[in-house]
């Protein structure tokens, strides 16, 4: 029997097994599916980009093929008080809470130019890919496969090829 103190210590500082985290995340995803909509992340980051683009004088509403797919609603939602942004922002704050509770918070500075270049290229590729496939590996892979849509499976299979390519690139060029 573990005592109360050990339990709280485990809750705050313990290294939970990954499968345990997987089970908890699955339940949260089911709750989201039932009461809101299936968990997704990059749909919302795209909406931020559209706002910036509109602000700069662009017309994202002309991208009809895309909005016929995801709905025009996302273009006119409140910038802060909408479910997706709240969910994403909550995720950041949730991690921050976990880190500070464990006493592990530290501002991690950028170490090298390599990190910046790879980060920027990687970020752009990820964003672009996620919009073509209509979801990231949370929205398309987890959401798609668990709701039995073919786009989830196709995305997952080709994401594996992409990861293989990415691993090879890193191995070849960035580690001597």
């Amino acid at each position: 029997m573990i005592g109360k103190k050990e339990f709280f210590y485990w809750l705050i500082k313990g290294n939970w097994p990954q499968w345990f985290g997987g089970i908890l995340l699955a339940f949260l995803n089911i709750i989201l599916t039932i009461f809101y909509k299936t968990w997704g992340i990059t749909g919302d980051t795209a909406d931020w980009g559209f706002r910036v683009w509109s602000f700069l004088g662009g017309h994202p509403e002309r991208w009809t093929a895309y909005f016929n797919e995801v709905g025009y609603k996302s273009l006119y939602k409140h910038p802060i008080y909408n479910g997706d942004t709240v969910l994403n922002f909550g995720l950041v704050i949730g991690v921050f809470l976990a880190v500070t509770l464990a006493g592990e918070f530290r501002i991690k500075k950028i170490k090298s130019a390599r990190q910046v270049i790879l980060g920027l290229i990687g970020g752009i590729l990820m964003g672009y890919g996620a919009r073509l496939a209509l979801g990231c590996n949370v929205g398309a892979m987890i959401g798609g496969i668990s709701s039995q849509s073919p786009h989830g499976w196709i995305f997952a299979v080709f994401m594996i090829f992409g990861s293989l390519a990415g691993s090879l690139i890193i191995k070849k060029f960035f580690i001597q």
Binding site: I41, T42, T45, L91, L118, G119, I121, G122, G123, I124, L125, M126, G127, Y128, G129, A130, R131, L132, A133, L134, C136, N137, V138, A140, H151, I154, F155, A156, V157, F158, M159, I160, F161, G162, S163, L164, A165, G166, S167, I169, I170
Partner: peptide, 21 residues
């Protein structure tokens, strides 16, 4: 487009060191 998106996303997340989440 789903397949292309998957490949690009896969490369991107390995290079950047983290997926969207």
């Amino acid at each position: 487009h789903t397949a292309i998106g998957g490949i690009l996303f896969g490369i991107g997340m390995v290079l950047a060191g983290g997926c969207a989440a």
